[in-house]
Computed example of a mutant assay.
Amino acid sequence: MYGELIVGINMVFNYAILSFADRMVKAQATTRRLLLASLFGALPVTIFPNSQIAIIIAFGAMIICAFGISIASIGGRAVIVLIGALFAGGALTVFTEKFMFSDSKATVFVSALLAYVFLYLLKTKWLDVRVARQLSSYSVASVLSIWNETISIPSFIDTGNRCTEPLTGEPVHFVSFKFVEQSIPEELKKPLLSWKTGDMPQLSTFPKHYQKTLRLIRLQTVQGASWAVGFKYDRWIIGEGSEMPAGYIVFTKQDNRYPEGAGAILHASALESITNERGTSHVAGT
């Protein structure tokens, strides 16, 4: 009975770790395969508890049974399994030293539950770091030239931004009003600040010598359709000197959806400029 209990504890622990690795690498292994791999990993360790060779054999058997024999399995997936085992095992060791139930079944249940909680927290933090890295990959320095002004703006390329000016099809980028407020001509600020988002803007309220560079941009969001004024820029350089195609900018007053530190959200087409500049390695790195 004692041996069966040890095998059961090891199986539960192995299954939690393999499930964690399966979700992290999106291997889509079946539950049956993960259970079988958990058993293969538990038996050698139970029979030979003090043997390092048995531990190595158990680890290899788990990886091969769960994910197959391939370079990817032996490499990246094995590393993730090892990280999960060290993290969850260390956390459980701390717990079991302080709290141990007299009932063996309760100990197995609580240990399994805690293993899943620990690995869930690890997965959450891991994904947060991955997302942060992805966001930083799409963040670029940029220099906007408009109204005889040159403005340095940290920008973010939003692959979901497909907004275009309806007549020309040119891309529309969104710029924080607060970020560039000091560079906006005073005669443009008044009509911009007095304009209500729900109403269609009247281009006639803007100075005549600016009107030829203005366009009405229809925006479609989850809140519904709205109108904005698009300003044609003279030039926009991003990254290490790549010039973006001609386009328009729309000023936004609500900046809560801007990534931290960004003053502009660029159209998805800006990614092509970065790709052409740096090669496909930039995209692959994301």
Rank of each mutant, 00 (worst) to 15 (best):
residue 9 I to D: 05
residue 56 I to D: 10
residue 18 L to V: 13
residue 205 T to E: 01
residue 232 K to M: 05
residue 213 T to G: 04
residue 51 S to M: 14
residue 70 S to H: 05
residue 246 A to D: 14
residue 147 W to C: 13
residue 247 G to Q: 06
residue 262 A to D: 11
residue 191 P to Q: 01
residue 4 E to D: 12
residue 98 K to R: 11
residue 193 L to R: 02
residue 81 V to R: 09
residue 67 F to Y: 15
residue 241 G to M: 13
residue 254 Q to T: 06
residue 278 R to Y: 14
residue 80 I to K: 14
residue 192 L to W: 07
residue 186 E to L: 02
residue 90 G to E: 08
residue 216 L to V: 09
residue 28 Q to S: 15
residue 16 A to L: 10
residue 229 V to N: 02
residue 255 D to F: 04
residue 274 I to N: 06
residue 231 F to Y: 08
residue 37 A to S: 11
residue 8 G to F: 15
residue 256 N to P: 02
residue 281 S to K: 04
residue 175 V to F: 06
residue 77 R to V: 10
residue 13 F to A: 07
residue 177 F to R: 14
residue 61 A to D: 07
residue 237 I to T: 13
residue 32 R to A: 14
residue 197 T to I: 00
residue 186 E to S: 06
residue 190 K to F: 00
residue 224 G to M: 00
residue 259 P to V: 07
residue 149 E to M: 07
residue 271 L to A: 11
residue 286 T to D: 02
residue 76 G to I: 15
residue 129 V to L: 10
residue 229 V to T: 04
residue 34 L to Q: 07
residue 3 G to K: 07
residue 255 D to L: 03
residue 120 Y to A: 15
residue 282 H to T: 08
residue 83 I to D: 09
residue 107 T to G: 12
residue 43 L to S: 01
residue 254 Q to D: 12
residue 71 I to R: 15
residue 194 S to I: 01
residue 104 S to K: 09
residue 273 S to T: 12
residue 209 H to P: 00
residue 233 Y to D: 04
residue 158 D to A: 03
residue 135 L to N: 08
residue 122 L to N: 13
residue 201 P to A: 06
residue 248 Y to A: 03
residue 141 A to H: 15
residue 243 E to Q: 14
residue 201 P to D: 04
residue 24 M to L: 14
residue 80 I to F: 12
residue 273 S to Y: 05
residue 242 S to H: 04
residue 72 A to E: 14
residue 32 R to L: 15
residue 208 K to W: 01
residue 51 S to D: 10
residue 19 S to R: 10
residue 160 G to Q: 05
residue 146 I to C: 02
residue 241 G to K: 12
residue 220 Q to I: 08
residue 281 S to H: 01
residue 185 P to N: 04
residue 173 H to W: 00
residue 232 K to L: 02
residue 197 T to M: 00
residue 90 G to Y: 06
residue 139 S to P: 02
residue 183 S to V: 02
residue 9 I to V: 12
residue 101 F to P: 09
residue 24 M to H: 04
residue 251 F to A: 09
residue 121 L to M: 15
residue 62 M to P: 10
residue 281 S to P: 00
residue 8 G to T: 15
residue 150 T to R: 13
residue 195 W to F: 09
residue 182 Q to M: 03
residue 156 F to T: 08
residue 68 G to R: 06
residue 152 S to Q: 11
residue 30 T to R: 10
